[in-house]
């Protein structure tokens, strides 16, 4: 009869912490979210838009002669506007993803008092924040960066010409830059709200308002129209992101506002969110 020792046994394996200490937090978070049916559905939805864009791209590039005749320069046609359009159409999916994935990430840990478990391990508050940001970031990469990147590769495969490459070579850089900015702004904002709030539904509502979607966006546009002052647009984080993103892709931007102003607002948002997170994510809660 086999006898299984269930007493305490010393472990002689190796403890080698990942150079990126936040990695297990991000990895575990992604693995926990990924199997959810609503998340899978959203990922499928997120890839539908780029798929349609891919078909469009194929049509445009294959109709070479016609496009050359009608538009003159086909490379320009599928360059800046085309790929930025593919990103821009993902806006609503990004909204849903960030809310779905991010709203409870820290709020739940605070409710279950998990922070003291995290900080009894060799982790700093920055590691914890980066780990949680990595979860949101992974899904933004899956829904924004990856499909557009594949679209770009697909374009190069069906039109492997120097002319086409010359018109779109910058897309991977612009795309990566924009995705990083999106992760920093949208991710840190939802995490800051998650660190402050308790209930997911209120956190989601606050994020939508602060991000500048829906009715809030309309109010801002109305204020801009009525006052004739373009700076009102800066109050919408979503518009700022769109403004800066279009600038990264070399597209025409708001003629009344310099993109650097929008970028500055976004950096202030990032700094403010990080400050809130550092204040709320502490190894020890002290009530004097």
């Amino acid at each position: 009869m086999p006898i299984h020792d269930q007493g305490y046994r010393h472990w002689d394996g190796e403890i080698r912490q990942h150079p990126l200490r936040w990695w297990p937090i991000a990895q575990r978070g992604v693995m926990a979210v990924l199997p959810q049916r609503k998340v899978i559905l959203l990922i499928v939805l997120a890839w539908l838009g780029p798929l349609v864009k891919g078909v469009t791209l194929y049509g445009k590039l294959r109709a070479t002669d016609l496009l050359t005749q009608v538009l003159g320069d086909k490379g320009a046609e599928v360059g800046a506007k085309f790929f930025w359009g593919a990103i821009d159409q993902q806006g609503f999916i990004v909204l849903l993803f960030v809310v779905l994935v991010g709203s409870n990430l820290i709020a739940a840990d605070r409710r279950f008092k998990a922070l003291q478990l995290y900080f009894s391990k060799p982790l700093t508050p920055l590691d914890y924040i980066l780990g949680k940001l990595g979860i949101v970031g992974t899904f933004l990469v899956l829904t924004v960066w990856m499909p557009v990147m594949l679209l770009w590769i697909f374009g190069l495969m069906i039109e492997p010409t120097a002319e086409f490459f010359g018109a779109v070579w910058f897309v991977p850089f612009s795309l990566t830059l924009y995705t990083l900015l999106l992760i920093a702004v949208a991710g840190l904002l939802i995490l800051a709200l998650s660190a402050v709030g308790q209930k997911g539904v209120f956190i989601a509502g606050a994020w939508i308002i602060l991000f500048g979607y829906g009715p809030f966006q309309l109010v801002i546009l109305l204020l801009r129209e009525l006052s004739g002052q373009a700076f009102w647009s800066l109050l919408s984080v979503e518009r700022d992101l769109e403004h800066v993103g279009a600038w990264f892709f070399g597209n025409a931007t708001d003629p009344e506002l310099h993109p650097v102003a929008s970028l500055a607002v976004l950096l202030v948002v990032v700094a403010a969110c990080y400050a809130v997170l550092r204040r709320r994510i502490r190894p020890v809660e002290v009530v004097l």
Partner: peptide, 27 residues
């Protein structure tokens, strides 16, 4: 072993314990 009740949400005991091991640096 902290004083107050604390759990990592969304996990069972095996997952939580293994996760804590990973946070320390175990494969």
């Amino acid at each position: 072993v902290p004083e107050s009740d604390c759990l990592v949400p969304g996990m069972n005991a095996v997952e939580m314990t293994a996760y804590c091991g990973q946070l320390v640096g175990m494969a």
